[in-house]
Amino acid sequence: MMTFSPQLEQKFAKMLTAYPEGKKRSAVVPMLIYAQDEVGSITPELIDEVARRCEVTPLQVDEVVGYYSMLHRKPMGKFHVQVCTNISCLLVGGMELYEHACKKLGISHKQVTADGQISLEEVECMGACSWAPAVEINYDFHHHVTPEKLDQLIDGLRKAQ
């Protein structure tokens, strides 16, 4: 059995009452993503735990994990840098920004720096099209990002370690 932080336990307790009687399975996806934020990745133990809490089989949780792009079986960095290269960002330098991030960090898509601190992902549209190019670091949006601004953001993350 796994336990989470008191805040998360509170969130999960409330979450399980949000759905109709007997429909705890509905909490699978939100529970996975919130738990991943705390645990670091979707581990086999986490799958078992979510299955237990949502009253489904571990397989029913496992099959969901592979479907959603934000769920990772391996840990990403402490700071997950997501650069959008979809159409609106592409037109205003999103691809160049992503290539710049690869060079700057010395890693590429879904890789993590050797110290485990920063990971990079080329992502699909994340709803910042009118303020492109956009980058999301963990859950923080950054708009109108230039290579210089990205350097500053990444340098800031390194200092924050």
Partner: peptide, 27 residues
């Protein structure tokens, strides 16, 4: 009224896929 988090899937914007996702399944 409750919020419910997705986890990264364009397909879940399709209404019936969204409902499957809301029910805790693949979208």
């Amino acid at each position: 009224l409750y919020t419910h988090s997705g986890a990264g899937a364009y397909e879940c914007g399709e209404e019936t896929a969204l409902l499957d996702s809301l029910e805790g399944k693949r979208g």
